[in-house]
């Protein structure tokens, strides 16, 4: 039995999905894509045929962050640009490297000396324990050295990195690059603090 379709905001196609009426499908067709689903746009070549399944295709120009070549509406202005300026793109915007994680910690720098730092480690993989480790500053990438301060936070991940056709055992230390403090953030914190203080003193009621 076909369900009656009302094309209004309150219509819920999934309510009628079990009946698989065309009404549900009509509604679904109004929304061709998930607005914030990540399907990587294949701007640079026409829609491809559906790939073979169950056949890992390491060489194919498909992102690991996707699984199928979704055809998708390409905005007209983008299409114009690509056709005008980049008619023969061969390379693809892909991350070629992969990482198989074996262990991960979050670290906080406690002390720094001339050539090393001591950090507390929280095990993010097994969540069983905390540790402390001393790292030589040589282990830190030179671009990250200015970030090494007491209280600084970093991630330390151990695993295998697949790069350039090779599998390499990797130990990656990466400091968090949190945005620097802005006046608006500090002012907002002060304002919230004042409000909370008044609230608990009973001067302000909601």
């Amino acid at each position: 039995m076909k369900a009656k379709a009302k094309r209004n905001r309150n219509y819920d196609p999934f309510q009628y999905a079990a009946f698989s009426g065309s009404a549900a499908l009509d509604y679904l067709n109004l929304r061709k894509e998930e607005p914030t689903a990540p399907s990587i746009k294949r701007h640079f070549f026409p829609p491809s045929d559906a790939p073979d399944y169950n056949k890992p295709d390491w060489a194919s120009e498909m992102s690991d962050l996707e699984n199928t070549s979704h055809t998708q509406e390409i905005p007209e202005d983008v299409k114009e640009v690509t056709q005008k300026y980049v008619p023969n793109i061969i390379s693809r915007p892909l991350i070629k490297n992969r990482f198989l994680e074996l262990q991960k910690w979050e670290g906080i720098v406690l002390q720094i000396s001339k050539d090393s730092m001591v950090a507390r480690l929280i095990d993010l993989s097994e969540k069983e324990s905390e540790g402390e480790a001393e790292f030589a500053l040589d282990e830190i990438h030179s671009d990250d050295l200015p970030l090494v301060k007491p209280g600084a936070i970093f991630y330390w991940t151990i695993g295998y990195l697949d790069k350039g056709g090779q599998r390499i055992r990797a130990s990656i230390i990466r400091f968090r690059r949190l945005p620097r403090w802005r006046t608006e953030e500090l002012d907002a914190a002060k304002k919230d603090a004042e409000y909370t203080q008044k609230l608990f003193k009973g001067d302000q009621q909601d």
Partner: peptide, 8 residues
């Protein structure tokens, strides 16, 4: 990677 490590 590390010089020393211990469980707390």
């Amino acid at each position: 990677t590390v010089k020393k490590i211990k469980e707390i």
